[in-house]
Amino acid sequence: MIPRILNAYMVECLKAMRARSTYLGPVLVVLLSMLAPLIHPITDDSGSAYAFIAFTTPMVLNLLGLLLVLTFCAGLVSSELGSGTIRLVLVRPLLRHEFLLAKLLLGMTYAALLTVLVGVSTWAVAAIQGRLSGVVFGGEMLHTSTDMVEAYMLGALAGLAPQFAAAAFAVMVSTLARSTGAAVGAAVGIWIVCDTLKYPLRIAPFLFSTYMESPWQVFTTYCEGLESSWTPALYYCLASSLGAIALFTTVAVVSFNRRNIQA
């Protein structure tokens, strides 16, 4: 099964690379990261470059990046369902859930790619315009440059979990919709409604979207010279994200297996 999924994943990657729309997201996030010094200037002060990175990364990834992931992943299955090419694809020796998992892997790859691009571009801008020599407060070196890189890397790695959950959510919506437009609209719409109502309905602690920025909290607070701890926010983030991925994938597989793709 795994070789078939990997094969399908490679095919999907090639398809995505051929589509021009795939490049829109990466270009946008890199552009926004490069232009971010206009909103958050980098000064020569110690810590300013890190503050820029801590400001830009979550902002680009969790506002624009999230929207891009939802849009991209919501079109992955629905576009094939809408155009009917799904029937041709499934002629191959490929089970439906394997096809779906390949699509999910593609969506996760896209989310990871955005994270990497944002990371590289923000660190590049910060390195060119500022000093990345650790965080100093009151003449005391609170965090060395190595500490900061480690905190960022760990944050980025952990930050992939909610991004992947968002991808799984959008793929699930994609399997339920009849067209790309409807899937994108539903994915974004449901997200906004859930976010708006999660606190009044007291479901916020269980939703992975609540913890989208939790992995960046430690890096951010390091920049501010504040006390910080990875736990328990990181545990909540990972648990809710992994739970969401499992739930959305199961729903997507079950619904896709039961779906009449001839209609």
Binding site: M59, L63, D195, L197, Y199, T210, Y211, M212, E213, Q217
Partner: peptide, 23 residues
Amino acid sequence: FDGGLRETLLRAMSRRRLEHEVR
């Protein structure tokens, strides 16, 4: 203010519970 801009705005608009840590 935990959780970034989006969570801060959502909490400020719709959440009545505040977490306050004494250190």
